[in-house]
Amino acid sequence: MKKKIIKSIILLTISFILGIFFIGLNKSSTYNTKDLIGSKISKIQLIQLSENKIITEKELKNNDFTLINFWASWCGPCRDEHPYLLKLSNETKLKLLGVNFKDNKKNAKQFLDNLGNPYDYITTDNSGKQSINFGVYGIPESILIDKDLIIIKKIIGPINKKDFESIKKTIE
């Protein structure tokens, strides 16, 4: 009897492990930070591009929703998502905060002059250090937060049509 129990336990363990492997096969093995949806953004200190004003979380608490968008003039995919950002800037409930990432002022200004400026606030992150506070690891990356500074959406890579529509849905 005792032997039978041990044998069944061994068989069950093996089946369990193999089962996990089987399910694991269909999961993606690459990581992204989408797991962080639901966590809160804190300790924000962003310097505005044009004037020497600092933007902190206080400012963002007044908005219903804020989309924080990391971009740079040297980043190709940022051009692809720009039209969607322009469209989003028409939304009343949504404010756009652009963070200019590791860029120089002149190029950044030119980029916006040529393509249009969708941002309500434009800030700069010369060294890239601020991006770490937001959990950003490659640009473009966009974070949608609500009034309570909780992350409700993370878009890694350029915003596409699907993302655009889902943002619109979320803020309504």
């Binding site: 990581y31 992204n32 930070t33 590791k102 890239g128 250090k129 770490i132 690891y137 490659g138």
Partner: peptide, 19 residues
């Protein structure tokens, strides 16, 4: 995070440098 299998020490990606 970009190179997935590499440590920050071993990587020379933009992200690793910032980090």
């Amino acid at each position: 995070l970009i190179c997935q299998g590499q440590s920050v020490a071993d990587s020379n990606s933009e992200f690793a440098q910032t980090l």
